[in-house]
Write a protein that binds this DNA or RNA. Structure first.
Lengths: 334, 334
DNA sequence: ACCGTTCATGGAAACGATTCCACCATAGTT
DNA sequence: AACTATGGTGGAATCGTTTCCATGAACGGT
């Protein structure tokens, strides 16, 4: 049933065909020194036989696998999809394969996937870390070359992250400028950076920093919806919410619609991460755009070059004003 | 700067620690026969040393790499992201790593990526094929175990595809039931299956099958927008359009808005592929939902089990009625 | 003319697993 | 008691590559 499955040709056969030793073939093919004549013969033989060096053999000898691992919480989330796209784009220009794993923001699954990667002798890894940084100690000790993307959980690991502080501050200032004082942050569990930035921003503008103004969801759509609905329902006094990601934003719009609170008349909404549908939404969503693809690309560069490694690179965000924010109305909702 | 980079421990060390030969260790760990006492010793030593067999060594010997390759046109497209998610979910339950490549629907890039995969000795591949089936001949001859997803371009390769024929027919019938007669199909280049299904559906309902009623775009957002705008502008007589994918649908909504044609008053729109934002759009979009994740999952099952391989599995689609389709108005637009 | 340096070259030893095969001990049979 | 199954066990070959090292030739300088 299966085809003839022709055996793959090896360096030995190339050597034989070219009338030289295997060492010479290897040297020619990896740019070592050789006489012009020999080089010619080897190249010709290799081309004629359509020789492809086996990455397996090479990697076993070299004690490291080429290629890079990538761990994201959810490939279905547009942000991580774009981040992944950036990684793939960079890796492709180096001809390096990328092995992708989905952690679901679960440290246990993450550890399991790291194990699989280590078994493959992968020594380069880009990760959007799920938990705190502690669990990365063994992986780092194992000599793994890690770069964090989107979140920084350890100071000793190079990271590429969006400028959360500036992004949050911009959002809060924008809303405050429209007269809002009770501003809520709808975030994901573990977004400690942004939450800190949020409370700092509130403080710097002398706005009330109620602890209950930040509500956190797990990264599933259901959890996001529940959190959004809860916030909208329990706190009629908040007149503006910042959603910490596109699925949170989606949930907020959905919940608002369900609970019959109007955007932007009843509450203003500003969402982290610009996605194509933000413009199609009704109303079109004002967003803090994040350079997801760039984050991935830069992270890949870092992990591939891994020359002197800067501790962290921070990429700018941008406020895109559409129509989901309005001036505060004098009376609170309901 | 770098940590101590502890060397990874090998089967030899485990053998030594357990006081047995390497062959025995290998046998115990892969379920071969051994005395209870020996098994005990080996397992204990392996656990104590935290031994992880090197996939490199194993694969080199076995002449095949575990793991599976996945080639999609665009990971940024929600449909392919969900498909990828399905593949990853299935692969994870087998503990198999997945190497992802983005083809951009470009056969050349696709061929290049296949080359990389073959270099890795990957022998299992799931692909959303870009071009026609011809270019796959060499890969198949090389013994590659291929499963096609979303598109079927060769009868001799197992494929997992949505039920295009039924989906298109449902859409056309639904629109015809609303009184529409001039229905256009806005598709991607190379969607021959669906386009054939579309013209067949028109014919079966005795609707005019103008050749210009199907317009094709390349898979970029720009191209999709141009095609949508062109269609809407040049053919004021069409009162309904079917968009062949979520980026095409997005483009159609955008173009309609730009050209000031109202949905659904001026033209009805039905989109292939249900995405979260379809409900948030204004108006909420009526769609033909496709089981993207299932497609990926089933494809992964096929490529992993690869027992007797059915030539093709077709997964059902489902019409989800929202608010982007209305009855035909008596007069054509403009 | 001799010696030292340089350079191309090929043989062989790794890398870490699997697996063939030979070996030995024990148990069972005549 | 001798001979044969049987089954556990370890040595060694193998997979395809890179790289160390030895070899030999060519060449230039004293």
């Amino acid at each position: 049933m299966n085809g003839p499955t022709q055996r793959r040709i090896t360096i030995k056969e190339v050597a034989e065909a070219a009338g030289v030793g295997v060492a010479t073939v290897s040297r020619v093919l990896s740019g070592g020194s050789a006489s012009a004549e020999t080089r010619e013969k080897v190249l010709a033989a290799a081309a004629r036989l359509d020789y492809r060096p086996s990455a397996l053999g090479r990697n076993l000898r070299r004690q490291r696998t080429g290629g890079i691992g990538l761990l994201v919480p959810d490939i279905t989330d547009s942000f991580y999809a774009r981040l992944t796209d950036g990684v793939l784009a960079c890796a492709r220009s180096y001809g390096e394969p990328v092995t992708v794993g989905v952690t679901g923001d679960d440290p246990e699954r993450e550890a399991e996937l790291i194990g699989t990667l280590i078994e493959q002798s992968m020594d380069r890894l880009i990760a959007v870390p799920s938990g705190d940084g502690d669990m990365w100690a063994p992986a780092l000790r194992a000599g793994l070359n890690v770069v964090f993307a989107d979140r920084r959980v350890r100071p000793d690991v190079p990271s590429v992250v969006p400028d959360d502080r500036a992004g949050v501050l911009t959002a809060v200032e924008y809303l405050a400028g429209l007269g809002h004082r009770k501003i809520a942050y709808l975030g994901r569990h573990g977004q400690s950076q942004r939450i800190a930035a949020f409370t700092a921003a509130l403080a710097s503008l002398k706005l009330p920093a109620d602890r209950e103004l930040v509500v956190q969801a797990r990264s599933s759509r259901d959890s996001a919806y529940a959190a959004a609905a809860g916030l909208l329902q329990n706190r009629p006094d908040v007149t503006a919410v910042i959603a910490g990601g596109n699925v949170l934003g989606e949930a907020a719009v959905l919940a608002a619609r369900e609970l019959d609170v109007r955007i932007p008349r009843d509450v203003s909404l500003i969402m982290f991460d610009d996605v194509p549908w933000a413009e199609l939404c009704s109303p079109p969503l004002t967003v803090i755009a994040q350079p997801a693809q760039d984050i991935g690309y830069r992270a890949a560069e870092l992990v591939l070059r891994h020359g002197r490694r800067p501790p962290a690179v921070t990429l700018p965000t941008q406020l895109v004003v559409r129509a989901s924010c309005g001036p505060r109305v004098a009376t609170s909702r309901r």
